[in-house]
Amino acid sequence: MSSPFPPPPLPPLVAILRGLPPEQAAAVGSLLYAAGFRCLEVPLNRPGALQSLRRLRDSLPADALLGAGTVLEPADVARVAEAGGQLVIAPNLNLAVVAAARAAGLLAMPGVATPSEAFTALAAGATVLKAFPGEQVTPAALKAWRTVLPQAPIYPVGGVTLDNLAAYHAAGASGVGIGSALYNPELPVAQLASRAAGWVTAWTEIRRGLDCSPGHAEGVLQ
């Protein structure tokens, strides 16, 4: 049995690296890439964020999709592009930020908390919807959203855990954003590697249970 929802336009697991020190960016990025993560986000509301983003871009393969989070002003979009970012992520829906991202050729992932905001974001050119906060957009709420937004790429962020990941996926999540449940700057490397492997394994197992087609690729996040 395959998923009833189309594949998302970006990798399904987004690693949110809040507070990533620039001097650790290459090592952290390489560890997560080796674990199977292909989308990394560095929120701008911490010092050194753009430097960390640039170091990720300089050290990771071309298929790593890099984004900046907490992009609140249109002027930030140009700085994200200059640092090598390809994805503009926000906790809110600012139509000017979405427009600036699309004008710069970047993917736009604004935060939405209601179906009305979701429709407005899509009409403005959003590539992906960030359902935020996830504690509010529960699996039950997301399932209701899907009745009117069957094709939209939706990524719950905030409150997503390994315990509720399958419920979010079953409700129609195209992917998820993972913050403190994956990374914080004080986390030992071995623990980060263990957490990363756990998330990739969990998503792969969920997908494997839904996709029994001959072309299903094991070990590849879809």
Rank of each mutant, 00 (worst) to 15 (best):
V176Q: 11
A171L: 10
L122N: 11
V157A: 14
R102M: 05
P185C: 14
A181H: 14
A170H: 13
V176A: 15
I206A: 07
T161Q: 12
S213M: 00
A197S: 14
A197W: 08
T138L: 00
T201C: 03
N94K: 06
T204F: 02
W203I: 05
A100P: 00
H169Q: 15
V98C: 05
A144P: 02
M109Q: 03
P156T: 09
T147I: 03
G179W: 13
P153G: 09
R195P: 04
N164R: 05
P115H: 02
A131T: 03
L129K: 04
A196I: 12
A167W: 05
G179I: 13
R195M: 06
A104R: 02
P115T: 03
T201S: 15
W199M: 08
S116R: 14
V189N: 04
Y183Q: 08
P185Q: 13
E117W: 01
P156F: 04
L165Q: 05
A144T: 07
G172C: 06
A104H: 02
G172K: 14
L93T: 01
A103R: 13
S174E: 09
N94L: 02
I154T: 08
P156A: 10
P188H: 13
G172N: 09
A144Q: 08
V200I: 08
M109V: 04
A166P: 01
L187S: 10
L182S: 10
G105Q: 02
N184T: 14
G158I: 11
G134V: 06
A101L: 03
A141H: 01
D163R: 15
R102H: 03
S116Y: 10
A144H: 03
G177P: 09
A141G: 02
E135W: 12
W145T: 06
A167H: 07
V128P: 01
V128A: 06
L165A: 07
A141K: 12
A166R: 13
E117Q: 04
P133I: 05
A108N: 00
P133S: 03
S116A: 14
A171T: 12
V148Q: 10
Q191M: 11
S180Q: 09
